[in-house]
Design a protein around this nucleic acid. Structure first.
Lengths: 196, 196
DNA sequence: GACAAATATTGACCACGGTCAATTTTAAAG
DNA sequence: CTTTAAAATTGACCGTGGTCAATATTTGTC
């Protein structure tokens, strides 16, 4: 049985997070240097790693929290009633992930966890998202707005698959005119969910 | 206008590739050290990087070639006639990618390139795969075996999305009983392609 | 063969993520 | 207040990917 963290540790952690977030917001994710975070927070590098394990762990905490914010937003909106409305509900989260390849890759690395490791913020986020989407789909099925021949959870996971797909595509043609991911999802969502 | 590479350079490249492949095949992708490759090939580290740009470039050449091999295999088989047969045609390629997360992430990084950068082997591979799959789908539509209300290319890209999805899921629950990716794809393929 | 220009290779050097034995700080117990 | 064990922090150190000015080799030309 381990004790609760001491006050000093919580302060250190908060300071590290705020420094890291500031760097990310001003210089972007790619410019984040672990040594710089520690230095600007006034602690040794080893302390930083003892708090978050590795760089990915630090990013996971930060982006996990932001994803949770988008999920709060999504839950606050009225339930969608069509595939197109699903896309519009997902749009803010998609735009957030699309802004930086590193965010996408990080989230993808956790995208399959359906249980266990629930301590990870990102895992919780994914479970929440699929649950939320499956709920939308159940409602739409009951209202007769979309196909009802498939399990809502399967359909929700399919939505997740298309989401990943359009983001991956988007990063590859980065240079060219990148249409917003929510828009790119539309044909897939319609083909996947519409009644035929 | 640049000249053709000199004979010495081609020999060096071949030697580097064979050393790298040997390490990957015996010790796995994660154990590959660029310095070791150069040393075992009897050249300096700088030479290795001048040939492949970076580690990812080296891996791209090696895995790109292997993916091409699987595509040759797939093209040699008779065209599939059902979603389940699509899954079985994809199975060898899926199992190959599923064996190592690094391969998956590398391929995903190029998965969206639909034109340009055609010099990249992996890009060519993806174009080939989507083209091949779209061809299968067109045939199946004409034979009335699957839905024909959507563009074959869109359907093929959807197949690609599910492919990525089940692989990503698989890597997250690595430890547990991982069902073969081709099998995991079945419910998605049926829901995506079947006539209803 | 001698020369020059393009090509190929070298290896010392750097950046950055990550480790861990040693040290300092905290807080509970007497 | 002391003692002491756990918790927290430190910073020198390491491994590995990647760079680049200097050097060596090849090739074309006279």
């Amino acid at each position: 049985m381990s004790r609760a963290p001491q006050k000093r540790r919580l302060e250190t952690r908060a300071k590290l997070l705020s420094v890291a977030e500031h760097i990310i917001d001003t210089e972007g994710c790619a410019a984040l240097r672990m040594e710089e975070v520690a230095a600007k927070a006034g602690v040794a590098k080893g302390t930083l790693f003892s708090h978050f394990g590795d760089k990915e762990g630090l990013l996971a905490v930060i982006f996990g929290a932001r994803v949770m914010g988008y999920l709060d937003q999504m839950e606050a909106m009225p339930d969608p009633d069509t595939p197109d409305e699903i896309a519009s509900r997902l749009a803010p989260l998609l735009d957030f992930v699309a802004q930086d390849r590193m965010i996408f890759e990080l989230l993808l690395r956790y995208s399959g966890t359906t249980s266990e490791n629930v301590d990870e913020v990102i895992t919780q986020g994914f479970i929440r998202q699929v649950t939320l989407c499956a709920g939308w789909i159940t409602g739409m099925q009951q209202r007769g707005r979309i196909r009802d021949d498939q399990d809502p959870v399967l359909l929700a996971e399919g939505v997740q698959a298309f989401l990943t797909h359009v983001l991956a595509i988007g990063f590859c043609q980065e240079h060219a005119q990148m249409i917003p991911p929510a828009e790119a999802m539309l044909p897939y969502l319609r083909g996947w969910l519409d009644i035929r």
